[in-house]
Amino acid sequence: MSTNIKMNKKSFNFGSALLTSLTYILLVLVAIVVLFPIIWIVGSSFGESTGLASATPIPKNPTIEHYKELFEKTKFSLWYWNTLKIALLNMVISVFLSTSAAYVFSRFKFKGKKFGMVAILVLQMFPSFMGMIAIYILFLNFGLLNNHLGLVLVYAAGQIPFNTWLIKGYLGAVPKALDESAMIDGATKTQIFFKIILPLSKPILTFVALTQFMAPWMDFILPRLLISSNEKKTLAIGLFELIKGQTNQNFTMFAAGAVLVAVPITILYVWLQKYIIQGVTAGANKG
């Protein structure tokens, strides 16, 4: 009997060890696949030659030549600043609009509420192209073309439906009893909003602020449509144009630009991933 148990223990250990090594091999393989493009682009940005054909992941003679080129030959820093401006503006306006709307939808009954909620749902389904021409002409009439504010307005308006719904779902978990006791103490609706609701919604507000900050960095279609002058371009347009067509020539400059854009955002993302995941699961649980 003891032999049996011993044998079982042995085979169990061997099988288990095998599985564990397989697991780690799998993890390493996936990590390689995940990291390869990243290493490649970072390496290329430090490589010596300019073409795509001669780019290597691990540069032989690392140089920051391309980074210098990027700032000298293109208006990269201007694009960076433009996009940063737009991102910050969008973040502030979007959080304000969606949170106030969510507060109203979550806490009050009023005429047209049902209509409002359905409208919010319906509005987000339309592919944005349909409206592109209309927005173009509308902005043309109001002098908002080639204007960062116009861009921000479109971003902020576009995120209202989804984020209002998201924040509203989150507010559903904040007990209405808090509101009621505050009202008994004489607080106005505005005071309740700023002193009770806002502080309690920090996680979801962080999520919304973060996603709205990051959105303009990656958006291509809207700036392509509304921005025409070189000075007002955003990063998305600038970088895309670097490798459109002349892939071979400007590739390493593009690599440098890509690294400069990706690094801060990635760090931001990883640092705040707790909030992002919370926000995403809030969509699932309370949604």
């Binding site: 996936v30 990590a31 995940v34 990291l35 493009p37 990243i38 490649w40 682009i41 073409g51 795509l52 054909a53 780019a55 290597t56 992941p57 990051m214 960095w217 990656m218 291509f220 998305a236 970088l239 895309f240 490798i243 892939t247 071979n248 590739f251 593009f254 890509a258 854009v261 990706a262 955002i265 990635t266 993302y269 990883v270 991933q273």
Partner: peptide
Amino acid sequence: RTIFILPWAIPSMISLLVFKTLFNGQFGP
């Protein structure tokens, strides 16, 4: 988990353009 979350953390536009060059038929690695 931190390694595996990287593709999500990197702005997708950048990754896509990187892949576009990676898989370039004429010059890509």
